[in-house]
């Protein structure tokens, strides 16, 4: 029987009692507007520049040039393929792990949570330092060719996504009471593949998609690791672009921002605030 008072319904009589709230709201608005300005001005400035590629006129010339650049689409598509591969590997590893830990090995949970914290503890530049030292000489020579380096990069991305993926899947499993569902399915005679694909996955759709999109947003423009592994992906391409071109980088920043927005927007839409995320890897 809790009745929450909507402040807008305050009557004339209650003005005195509501006075402090009104004062607070002034500060709230002030903070919000100043904050919004801080975040929108750089975007607006970048957008402004991206429209100024042609002299004395606004237009989308910078975007046209960006997409016409012979290196842009190849590096973009390579990054997309890398991201998707990393997401698939991550899913293949994390879903059974999270499921198993929830159902069979709860004692392992602290260990796994600790390991999924490692990407936050090891800065990307340190990680790539160690990877190069470890895998650039026999017996573990993986950086010899471009393609073997690329495989290593994708695997590293998958590992970096563990924190987001594990948290998303774990939350999803907790929300659906995986134990009861599994036992119910078993008691009805379902086999393991049936349980996994007909019961668990459909209920985890939102969690899996959130984890995947978050991974995508982080991996797609990743610079540090790709740079030191000499990969021709979007991150190094963009870094190079900012040094060599004037207007294209602004168009590129807007496109990158739009991609991040799309990923986050979809997460918000499908999950309605389910994600508990920590960013990392800047």
């Amino acid at each position: 029987m809790t009745v929450s008072a909507a402040p807008t319904q305050a009557t004339v009589k209650s003005e005195t009692a509501r006075a402090p709230v009104r004062k607070n709201r002034f500060w709230s608005w002030l903070i919000f507007v100043v904050g919004a300005l801080y975040f929108l001005v750089p975007l607006a400035a970048t957008f402004y520049w991206s429209l100024r590629a042609e002299k004395d006129k606004f237009g989308f010339e910078a975007y046209r040039r960006l997409f016409a650049d012979t290196n842009f689409l190849p590096s973009f598509s390579e990054s997309i393929v890398n991201a998707i591969a990393a997401i698939l590997i991550s899913l293949l590893i994390i879903v059974p792990t999270a499921y198993w830990v929830t159902l069979r090995l709860p004692k392992l949970r602290p260990v796994i949570e600790f390991i999924t914290l490692l990407p936050f503890v090891i800065p990307a530049v340190v990680l790539v330092f160690g990877l190069i030292r470890l895998y650039s000489r026999p017996p573990l020579l993986l950086t010899a060719t471009y393609d073997s380096s690329r495989i290593l990069l994708v695997c590293v991305y998958a590992a970096l996504s563990f924190p987001y993926m594990f948290r998303a899947v774990d939350n999803g499993l907790r929300a659906m009471d995986v134990r009861t569902l599994t036992e119910a399915a078993q008691s009805l005679g379902a086999s393991w593949p049936t349980i996994l694909f007909r019961v668990i996955f459909p209920n985890l759709r939102v969690a899996l998609l959130s984890g995947a999109l978050l991974t995508f947003a982080i991996v797609i423009g990743e610079l540090t690791i790709a740079l030191f592994m000499a990969q021709h992906t979007l991150g190094p391409y963009m870094a190079n672009l900012t040094r060599s071109k004037v207007y294209e980088p602004s168009a590129m920043a807007i496109v990158a921002f739009a991609i991040t927005w799309a990923a986050m927007g979809i997460i918000q839409l499908i999950g309605r605030g389910q994600q508990g995320q920590i960013a990392g890897g800047h």
């Binding site: 975040f39 001005v41 750089p42 975007l43 400035a45 970048t46 402004y48 520049w49 978050l214 947003a217 982080i218 423009g221 990743e222 610079l223 991150g235 963009m238 870094a239 900012t242 980088p249 602004s250 590129m252 920043a253 990158a256 921002f257 991040t260 927005w261 986050m264 927007g265 997460i267 918000q268 605030g273 994600q275 995320q277 960013a279 890897g281 800047h282």
Partner: peptide, 22 residues
């Protein structure tokens, strides 16, 4: 909160570029 999700992941090259233009 959605924007925060975006902005907290909007880092690296695009962010640097945006500030150069600002």
């Amino acid at each position: 909160s959605t924007f925060s999700g975006v902005a907290s992941n909007f880092a690296g090259v695009p962010l640097a570029a945006a500030y150069v233009f600002t």
